[in-house]
């Protein structure tokens, strides 16, 4: 594998993430709309905030892409004037780092649902750490906190895991992902026939 990310990898990752940033911007108000009911229904869709990382990784399949994607998605959202303000940047950074770490642990060699769901859980853990610190969620009554965490985990696996894998698979079928994949040795050998 070539050292570092090429310009094409970086640009594709960032554009995909900004596309998600647009979706986030459209969904952000929706998120707040379901939030005040207090029963944390909103947490079920929270996982969509980490989707950019796994989708971009599944498309490009290189180290650093998940982290870059999360940062890009959050800065896109930030520059468009997100209701969440600056915190999106830090959340993005932490969530991206945690997902990246999981992918690194498996040497960026596996792209199956299990690993992607683990990465989703990584992002989920990252976001929870931020929430404990920033949102005092530890001070919620125990049943409420449990509900909060369980819903967020379910949401993460649903969106960042399952849904991301499904989108990546559909994109794979269109053939567009071939653009950003490195050619293999086998492809080069085929030229000698």
């Amino acid at each position: 594998m070539q050292k570092g990310l090429k310009l094409t990898d970086i640009l594709v990752t960032i554009v995909i993430s900004i596309a998600f940033g647009i979706l986030y911007k459209i969904w952000g108000p929706l998120y707040y709309a379901v939030k005040p009911f207090g029963l944390h229904i909103d947490q079920l869709i929270y996982g969509m905030w980490f989707m950019a990382a796994t989708v971009a990784f599944l498309i490009i399949r290189k180290p650093g892409v998940a982290l870059l994607a999360e940062i890009a998605a959050s800065s896109g959202e930030f520059l468009m004037g997100s209701e969440f303000g600056l915190e999106v940047l830090l959340y993005g950074l932490i969530q991206g780092l945690f997902a990246e770490f999981i992918l690194f642990a498996f040497r960026y060699k596996r792209f199956d649902l299990f690993i992607i769901s683990l990465a989703a859980l990584g992002s989920c853990a990252g976001s929870l750490i931020m929430d404990f610190y920033k949102g005092y969620i530890g001070d919620l009554s125990t049943w409420n906190l449990t509900l909060f965490i369980v819903f967020r985990i379910i949401g993460s696996i649903l969106f960042t895991g399952l849904f991301a894998v499904s989108i990546a698979k559909a994109l794979e079928a269109t053939g567009v992902t071939n653009l950003v994949r490195s050619s293999s040795k086998k492809d080069h050998e085929a030229l000698d026939q």
């Binding site: 090429k6 310009l7 094409t8 994949r181 490195s182 050619s183 492809d187 080069h188 085929a190 030229l191």
Partner: peptide, 8 residues
């Protein structure tokens, strides 16, 4: 160089 297509 930029576009990775196998060639020789």
């Amino acid at each position: 160089r930029t576009i990775d297509i196998p060639m020789k």
